[in-house]
C-alpha cells in the first residue's frame, strides 16, 4: 500500500517537506512542485535531506515546469522530472495521493 506525497511549500519557510520526509517509507514517492523544488538547490540543508532520503531508496520526483521556471541547475541524478501526464501517471501508480496543502 503505497502513498505519493506531494509537497509544494518552500523548505526554507515551512516545515512541510521535513515533516513529510520523516514519514516517507521506501515504497512511497515524493513529488516536489512549486516552491518545494527549491529544496533541490545544491549545498543546502534541504538538499542534504533529500540526498539522504534518495540514498535510503526513496523515490523522488519533481514537476518539470517548476524546475524550468526557476532554471535550477546541478540537479541530482536520482531525481526524476515529470510533466503533468507523468504526475497523473504517478497518481495512478501509487495507491493514494497525499497533497501537503
Amino acid at each position: 500500500m503505497t502513498t505519493l506525497h506531494v509537497v509544494s511549500h518552500s523548505p526554507f519557510a515551512d516545515d512541510r517537506l521535513q515533516s513529510c520526509i520523516r514519514l516517507l517509507r521506501p515504497e512511497d514517492g515524493l513529488l516536489l512542485c512549486g516552491n518545494a523544488v527549491e529544496a533541490l538547490r545544491d549545498g543546502t540543508k534541504p538538499r542534504a535531506l533529500l540526498d539522504e532520503a534518495a540514498a535510503a531508496s526513496r523515490s523522488i520526483y519533481a514537476l518539470d515546469e517548476d524546475l524550468a521556471a526557476r532554471a535550477l541547475a546541478g540537479l541530482p541524478e536520482w531525481l526524476r522530472a515529470v510533466d503533468y501526464a507523468g504526475f497523473v501517471e504517478l497518481s495512478c501508480q501509487y495507491q493514494r495521493v497525499n497533497g501537503w496543502t
Binding site: T2, T3, R22, L23, R25, D28, R96, N98, T101
Partner: peptide, 18 residues
Amino acid sequence: EESRLGDFIARFDHVVTL
C-alpha cells in the same frame, strides 16, 4: 509513533491534509 505514521496513512483509501 513517528516510525508508524507512513503505515498508518497507508491504511486509508484517501488522505486529505489541511
